[in-house]
């Protein structure tokens, strides 16, 4: 199976371990990720706040490129990117005037719905299937029997009417992934609460409080590690963990934060270096102790 791959700006350096582990895991599952040639930034939420039309134009350019390069599915690993791609496609399908306006900005026009943009979790659920992942898991992996929580963040499931992936209140696919590698998913009320990463460099106290509450809740339900699918969430939950915990409580604790691809990679018995486990801010060394390297 061959799909288009839209990495997004942060995957090349800020979240290189995510990029690397996704490639390794997908290779193992028999999915070929072909990087979209000549892609540009999707603009995230920031460009929309400055110039509405240009923001839609630059997203549509990526979709037009995917159409030109004959991809049926366009996979984004960053939820903000996948949200922008899905939302622009959705708007162009449902509003003909808008589609014409956006197409007038582009060199090669984009036919709405000719490409299906989606997040990588959706590809895993609908096109690969949990059964196929189960086949590749080797017994005796270091995560067996560990307690874990899945953290979705915002754009994996919200806004529900546009993304149409899972129940925005209680998504469960990542819990299935935890179960597949042999760990125990815990009930986690803060599963879809925002970590506030978009305001990271503007309002530090807000972000730290939101993130701290999530971490505190994760510890209270007994999580030994957190599973997520967003590099911005990782930047606040993982990179800012010490400050965030300090902001909300006096206690000291540490929870390793892993990408879902790293967890699947560990389950498949891939070696630690190729999954980039050394690049996580909170070292997962303690979690993986006792297992063979």
């Amino acid at each position: 199976m061959k799909v288009g791959y839209y990495p997004g700006c942060s995957l090349h350096k800020v979240a290189k371990e995510y990029d690397r582990s996704v490639h390794k895991v997908m290779e193992k599952l028999g999915v070929e990720l072909v990087e979209l040639k000549d892609w540009n930034c999707c603009g995230a939420l920031e460009v929309t706040a400055v110039d509405h039309l240009a923001a839609e134009g630059i997203v549509a350019r990526n979709l037009a490129l995917a159409e030109e390069q004959k991809f049926e599915q366009l996979i984004a690993v960053c939820p903000a990117c996948s949200y922008q791609l899905i939302a622009t496609n959705y708007k162009m399908v449902h509003d003909k005037n808008k589609a014409d306006e956006i197409n007038s900005l582009l060199e090669t026009p984009y036919t709405p719905n000719s490409v299906k943009p989606m997040h990588i979790l959706e590809l895993l659920r609908d096109y690969v299937g949990i059964e196929k992942i189960k086949e590749k898991i080797v017994p005796g992996n270091p995560l067996e029997g560990k307690k874990a929580v899945s953290y979705y963040g915002c754009f994996c499931t919200r806004p529900g009417d546009i993304i149409q992936f899972e129940d925005p209140d209680n998504p469960t696919f990542m819990d299935d992934l935890i179960e597949v590698v042999g760990a125990e998913p815990q009930f986690f009320p803060m599963k879809t609460k925002c970590c506030g990463a978009t305001q990271m460099l503007v309002a530090k106290p807000v972000v730290e409080t939101l993130t701290g509450n999530i971490l505190l809740n994760a510890r209270d339900v007994g999580a030994e590690f957190i599973l997520l699918a967003c590099q911005m969430c990782a930047l606040s939950l993982d990179g800012q963990q010490k400050q965030a915990i300090k902001r909300v409580t006096d206690e000291k604790f540490e929870i390793p934060v892993l990408y879902f691809s790293q967890v699947l990679g560990l389950g498949m018995g891939l070696d630690y270096k190729s999954l980039g486990l050394g690049s996580n801010y909170v070292s997962p060394k303690k979690l993986l102790k006792g297992a063979k390297t």
Binding site: C9, S10, K13, V14, W39, N40, C41, G43, A44, E46, V47, A49, V50, D51, A54, I58, Q199, L201, V202, A203
Partner: peptide
């Protein structure tokens, strides 16, 4: 004050895209 900061951030972010095509943190 917070508005000025947030707007400044949004603006630099967009300028980076117009300049490089992708953001350069």
């Amino acid at each position: 004050k917070q508005g000025r900061l947030k707007h400044s951030f949004d603006k630099r972010f967009s300028e980076s895209i117009w300049l490089w095509g992708r953001t350069w943190e």
